[in-house]
């Protein structure tokens, strides 16, 4: 059969792009944030990440091999990405068995029940994270104190666990403290941006996440539409609120560099499978995430809302894909 010439429809060449290449690109983009996390949280960060990745990949393998009896596709790297993203959303001192449950929910419920890569409507890592957040609220919100951070805001509250800046803000506002006073207790924005704040593994280092985003943009793994539209819409929305009542609402920059916003905007919302296909759709999706995030953060019960916002907008993706079409050639007739 090898001697015969091949006949196939065009095109006869391929770019060489593959799912693996894209997935490993995302993994490389996450490494700076992981390094920062290791620097601040030490061995805990490594342990959580490794457990999460290994368990996600093993669950995918087991499900594909023994339950679905389908081709094993763990080498495509998507389970590693899910594992890493799940770890990025967890505190670095989480017990191993909770991570295992999270990985099982992520891969088992979030991904494989829908038919595996390409068919899941919701971001698997976020499904796992939200499941854990609702099931183990205490463990999931008790963050260890980052190394080398000894600002008063941490020593104020219960020794070992450091709440997130957003948590402090929410708590402060509940007690009637004006925003400016709460801010005094928090480190400077620059410190927050390089990771000196409490939070889950991946979300603390805004700067490292932005480096990852630039890498992914340069390698054309993602387009600018989703991250930029999320960040801009959060900026604009919180900006309006802040201008209207500065004592009640924190300023927009604070909202962007704290919490999971950058992690969500850069790595979670841009997940191929669960985000819209067209540029216009991506912007609608991004703005939706931005607005829902701010609504939850400012008016909701939870201090943080990025995960919920992304999951809610994931649900709208099929609708967006159905109705938001790309601009067809010949549609915008510019015949002047």
């Amino acid at each position: 059969m090898n001697k015969l010439i091949t006949v196939a429809p065009s095109p006869h060449i391929h770019s060489g792009l593959s799912v693996q290449k894209l997935m490993y690109g995302v993994i490389i983009a996450m490494i700076p944030a992981l390094l920062v996390s290791i620097a601040f949280y030490g061995i805990g960060a490594i342990a959580v990440t490794l457990i999460s990745i290994v368990s996600c990949v093993s669950f995918e393998f087991l499900i594909q091999k023994f339950i679905l009896n389908s081709q094993v596709r763990i080498s495509d790297g998507s389970a590693i990405v899910t594992g890493m993203l799940l770890a990025f959303n967890l505190p670095s001192n989480l017990p191993w068995w909770i991570i295992l449950i999270g990985a099982m929910v992520s891969i088992g419920i979030g991904k494989m029940t829908f038919g595996g890569l390409g068919n899941n409507p919701f971001n698997p890592a976020l499904v796992g994270r939200v499941f854990l957040l609702l099931s183990f609220p205490v463990q999931m919100t008790s963050y260890p104190v980052p190394k080398g951070v000894s600002t008063p805001y941490i020593s104020n509250i219960e020794g070992f666990t450091g709440p997130t800046p957003l948590g402090i803000l929410k708590e402060g506002l509940k007690n009637g403290t004006p925003v400016s006073d709460v801010m005094k207790e928090l480190p400077s924005y620059l410190d927050l941006f390089i990771g000196k704040l409490g939070g889950s593994l991946g979300e603390i280092a805004g700067a490292a996440l932005v480096i990852g985003m630039i890498f992914m943009l340069l390698r054309k793994i993602i387009t600018w539409h989703i991250p930029v539209s999320i960040i801009l819409s959060v900026y604009v929305f919180t900006g309006i609120l802040h201008l209207a009542q500065p004592s009640q609402y924190a300023d927009p920059l604070f909202h962007i560099i704290t919490g999971g916003l950058l992690l969500g905007a850069i790595f979670m919302a841009t997940d191929y499978v669960t985000s819209p296909m067209t540029p216009a759709g991506m912007i609608i999706y991004g703005v939706g995430i931005g607005i829902i995030t701010v609504l939850i953060r400012v008016f909701g019960a939870y201090p943080e809302g990025v995960s919920f916002a992304i999951l809610i907008m994931n649900g709208f993706v099929p609708l967006i894909n159905r109705y938001i079409k790309p601009v067809r050639f010949g549609e915008e007739v510019s015949n002047g």
């Binding site: 015969l4 091949t6 006949v7 196939a8 429809p9």
Partner: peptide, 14 residues
């Protein structure tokens, strides 16, 4: 006898 190897999508119409 087979004279070429077809490498496109394996459906008759295509």
């Amino acid at each position: 006898p087979q004279t070429t190897y077809y490498d496109g999508t394996a459906t008759c119409v295509i």
